[in-house]
Design a protein around this nucleic acid. Structure first.
Lengths: 134, 134
DNA sequence: CTTGACCTTCCAGCGGCTGGAACCTTTAAG
DNA sequence: CTTAAAGGTTCCAGCCGCTGGAAGGTCAAG
């Protein structure tokens, strides 16, 4: 299987597969005499695993750990769970932060005329946070 | 005012002030004979503006636009509002995406024993998304 | 006159890609 | 057999928003 074929079956494009190889998340495959990478079916699973983990927001560093656990048949499920829940915490923190941003902006925008006049609480707030403007 | 003093009063560190200058969000200040940057009080406001806008999650590109509007006394508040609401949409989309990630993970983690046994629905799901495992 | 705290520039790296240039190999058609 | 397209290869650069370090110049106090 060439890299292009692997890309199609895994849904991860060839460029990215090479990138993953370069950062050490994907093992170096064998090569043909002319230097082409050759892959097997198990590599499809491997890349799909990575893709799904990315889809859940795991960092490449976390994915390396996940792969380690995945391949370690004598792993403890509590280690996997811990990794996942740590990540959930990170996600929740980011979600909260962004919600606060969005809520602040919505509030400011609600009080903005939104017409041709220049006065705007959004700018006032950025200019002079929390303090009176007159 | 030197860059270090500006950094203290604005809460934006000196390194970052230079960076902002290099990407053109902060105007080039005057210099002393020996080449030191010299700032005035208005620059404090400027940097605080940027810092607050960053705190609301605006990109540097958006901040450039905001600064343009801020300095344009004949701006229309609807332009500011539009910029803000577009950004809110972006935030909401990211929030939703991350919530879905977190929810999926929570569900998987809930079904994970979290003990010394190796079986774990989190890994199964990454390995074989949605499909049966037996 | 030296020390140390500041300032200057430039270059590199983080993460997670993405794109391009310049080149080689394989495959199919004429 | 030749040729052209569609793959493959490497390496280098850029995106974003910083952050850090090296190597040097400047300034005030002791």
């Amino acid at each position: 299987m060439t890299i292009g074929e692997l890309a199609k079956s895994s849904g991860v494009n060839a460029k990215l597969i090479r990138h993953y190889e370069s950062i050490g998340v994907v093992p170096k495959p064998g090569r043909t005499d002319s230097g082409y990478r050759i892959y097997s079916k198990t590599d499809i699973q491997f890349l799909k695993f990575i893709k799904r983990a990315r889809g859940l927001g795991f960092s490449m560093k976390e994915i390396k750990k996940l792969i380690g656990l995945w391949r370690n048949k004598s792993r403890a499920s509590k280690d996997v769970k811990a990794l996942a829940l740590t990540h959930v915490k990170t996600l929740d923190a980011k979600i909260l932060e962004m919600q606060e941003m969005a809520d602040s902006l919505r509030l400011l925008a609600r009080n903005c005329h939104g017409d041709a006049r220049p006065d705007c609480p959004i700018l006032s707030s950025l200019e002079n946070n929390g303090e009176k403007n007159d």
